[in-house]
Computed example of a mutant assay.
Amino acid sequence: MSWMKQQAEKAKSIQVTQEDQRKATETAPAAACTAPGHLMQLQATAEKQRKEIADLRIQLERASRGRRPVSRMHEVPGRRRKLTPEQYAELKANLQKFPLANPVVLEARPDGDWNINAGNNRVAIYRELGLEEIDSIVTDIDPADAERLAFFSNLFAPSLSDYEKYWHFQCLQDEADALTRQELAATVGLSDSHVSKIFAFEGLPAEAKEALIEKPERLGAEAAAHLAKAAAEGRNGAVVEAVRRLVSDAAFTQKEAVRSVQPQAAPRNIVGETLVVKVGKKSFCEITTRNGVIGVRLKAETDRVGEWAKEIQQFIESRLASKD
């Protein structure tokens, strides 16, 4: 059983009595209703998770530190934090000028190389700069705990996009003993609604999700929910096109992307001016137009409708013939 499943089981075993609820009601602060309030709650949850993995950090401090070849370091899917091009360029410029502030964290592999637990971007930049060795720590943390450390470090990173959170959650659900969404929410300390919102990306077409890999920060969960709804209604092509444009066009906004996939409104009936033909002061007929249709309503000589229809036909034919 994975550590995530174990945490979910612990969460389910917690029993809350009526007395507990009464005390919580008396002492707990009101739920945050503002955006800053929600942010404070999220920060508090992040701090709780950081404390929970403090023992892992102690192990890191006791681990073997030294300079090791980057050529023997390997990236594990899901452990690399996605940076925007600007963030990556800023980190690269910093590493060109200054020594590494924090060593990368590695775990030993059976073949003698190392998997990277933390520091994938730093290792990648060292390779680009042609630097052969990087300051590192090798720890004997259990692989499941290494996954845990990377997961929480990435999950609560301020710059982590909604799509990357979805990707992390999806990886956890793909495990053999996969968590339900409710278990996942209880384990990571987020609300069911927040986790459900993150899973809105699940409804996007595969081509759209593939396009987001390049710039995941371009689409948030709120807009993703609208695009997923459009995809469910059969507008997959429009959704893929909207996401691809979001990735390629910095001026194209999420609101515009959502509008672009909405069904086209039915054309309104355009009613033109009613023309009245009079004989003296009496109305002979009314001529109306609506969406390309010309209607003639006789007020007089209604018994000659067929004859008037033929005369109208002949008039139109004569006009067309004069244009040839």
Rank of each mutant, 00 (worst) to 15 (best):
L56Q: 13
C33F: 11
R68L: 13
E132M: 06
N115G: 14
N269H: 10
V271H: 13
Q6L: 14
I294F: 13
G295M: 10
K92M: 12
L212P: 07
E19D: 09
A89N: 07
C285D: 09
M4K: 11
P158S: 06
A321R: 08
E210R: 00
N269W: 03
Y126H: 12
E133L: 03
E133R: 08
W114A: 12
A224W: 13
V239G: 03
Q6E: 15
Q182R: 01
R319W: 09
G306I: 02
A11H: 04
V240W: 08
K5E: 02
A8N: 13
K282V: 00
K209E: 12
V296H: 14
K51R: 07
S13A: 15
R109D: 14
H194D: 10
T187Q: 11
E75W: 10
R304H: 08
V195N: 13
E132N: 09
A224T: 13
G78S: 11
K92W: 00
A54M: 02
V271F: 11
V123H: 07
P29W: 03
E301N: 07
G112L: 11
A93D: 13
A230H: 08
E47F: 08
L246M: 10
I270E: 12
A232E: 06
V188N: 00
V293L: 11
S136T: 08
R79I: 05
K229W: 04
A31F: 05
A35Y: 11
W114N: 10
R181Y: 06
E256Y: 01
R22W: 03
S153C: 13
L39A: 14
T84P: 10
N291S: 13
A46W: 07
